[in-house]
Write a protein that binds this DNA or RNA. Sequence first.
DNA 1: ATAATTGATGTAACGGTTTACATAAATTAA
DNA 2: TTAATTTATGTAAACCGTTACATCAATTAT
Lengths: 331, 331
Amino acid sequence: MLNIHKVAEEAGVSVATVSRVINNQGTVAKKTQEKVEKVISRLNYEPNMLGRNLRNSESRLIMVLVPTISNPFYAQIVQGIEDIVRKENYNVFLCTTDSEPEREKVFLDYVRQKLTDGVIFMDPAVEVEMLQDLANRYPVIQCCEYNEDLNIPYISIDDTQASYKAVKHLITMGHEKIAIINSDETFQYARNRKKGYLKALEEYGLPIKDEWILKNSELNFEAGQNSMRKLLRADDKPTAIFAVSDILAIGALKRMNEEGLQAPEDIAVVGFDNIPFASMTNPALTTIAQPMYEIGSQAAKMLFQKINTPDEPVSSTLLDNELIIRESTLG
Amino acid sequence: MLNIHKVAEEAGVSVATVSRVINNQGTVAKKTQEKVEKVISRLNYEPNMLGRNLRNSESRLIMVLVPTISNPFYAQIVQGIEDIVRKENYNVFLCTTDSEPEREKVFLDYVRQKLTDGVIFMDPAVEVEMLQDLANRYPVIQCCEYNEDLNIPYISIDDTQASYKAVKHLITMGHEKIAIINSDETFQYARNRKKGYLKALEEYGLPIKDEWILKNSELNFEAGQNSMRKLLRADDKPTAIFAVSDILAIGALKRMNEEGLQAPEDIAVVGFDNIPFASMTNPALTTIAQPMYEIGSQAAKMLFQKINTPDEPVSSTLLDNELIIRESTLG
DNA sequence: ATAATTGATGTAACGGTTTACATAAATTAA
DNA sequence: TTAATTTATGTAAACCGTTACATCAATTAT
């Protein structure tokens, strides 16, 4: 086994001296230092991180829990996280949970088990008590999806206000029959976006119909296509659609295209997130831009607050969002 | 500190007994077991993974190094990896390198430092000697991007043959002026795809022009758009384009769209990868489908071969690929 | 020349877990 | 009843690195 003892032995010094050289604390005589360094590079020695972290009870590792990486939405957020984390000389381990509680649990245990120093959690599906319990003892930040009943700092946007804005835009464009393609309402964001949708319709006295309110348990193109298929078969066809995710909106646009329909002439479509691909579609997609990078970097900053001053409370934030108007709603 | 000693003390047993209960080895008397379990759940104890892994010199953790998660191409591969890895009762840590050698190095050190049991490496930019050295001592698999001069197992596709197929398709459709939008030729795949492109042109005696051969250091929509802008300004405009990535192809399509041009009528476009978005564009994109899920799951299987039988050689594989013909080339 | 200070290095405990081996108690065999 | 075996539990070393404290040598001060 190649370890610090072996190096010490080869160099004819004690392990303490080797350790001092590795963590260059400057208290080692020059020639001893050189001697040790020579042995280290000759043997190709790397300190074992388990031993080191165990001793230091610190890993300088952050875990980021995402449901999936197939939605580019997360890519930008992770970029924001990475940039801050690296600046602090930490590194990021990204873990995908598929929103499965058991998988989330396994990864969260890594925090309890001291493998990582903290966690940024998007889209938690795990039981709330267990999450709260974890957050009481370790640094945890909720990012994007959150539960405000918990005493865990979160960073997100005001989904209700954002979707209200999106739907109001459709109303301003003259639409009166507006459908929503939503995801699973177990998610807070889905409930909030529906709330904003309903609020806008009520405010303008527009009809609310069950057949215009669709839910999807999966969030992918196919779900968007399926939802659009259903809407095109509705007794009373909507003239505009608000999809709570660009992915769903793009699937919907595709379905229209397959049926020979045009956006916005036949049906206008608004998405949500402003993933890079949203501007690449034809027609380009009107959408709510979340400040993804900013969300990520803020989340990381909040996490470091918790790590560095565990006893001081970290305040939660809702960031601004922006309606990006493109061809899919512009007559 | 809450540790196994504390639990042992509270339960009035030795640490060995607690350890046996945790790893339920069945050699503990029923009532002792219950007593210990009660204490464990009362104190909310979780074994420290650093201590455990240090002792066992095993982490049951796999590191996957990707340049970025913003290209959905990687999402599918990672899915393939995850499914196998979980089946083996391991977990995946995903790390993004931005193809920066220093970042790659930091993560690779985690393997040396025993934090993870192996690595699947896509798109290595790190110095080859260091990678080879790592692979000599730890389980490493090259995935997608690879260097065949190294003695490190790889899984990928035959890029030369695939791009030859793509370009031949364009030729079959009657095109004689065919451009390539490539990425950085420091990458093996980029060199191979160019090779296939040239081979097809040569075989059919078609012209090869410098102004039809474009390179991009970044691989994103903007790069695709920029390349297309250049091609549209060429003295001799191509009638067909082979892009070595769907992302580039989609950017190129967008640029055409902005200029009021249609694919394939004005210029035909072929992409590479068959990311989910590729079928969502309008027109839908003709592309080379890489068996992404399969690549990922194979990579994981190969890694476990290395982990479980370190001394037996693992053979490298090139998987089949398929040309998916869609609207962007179909007159 | 002696005492006091500085500098370089070593010793050993500690962080948390697992497990070979030892021991004690309980059971079975003779 | 005694010896042999089985079962349950405990002791202590091992995994690897860090660091407070101790030690010794060398330098500086008096």
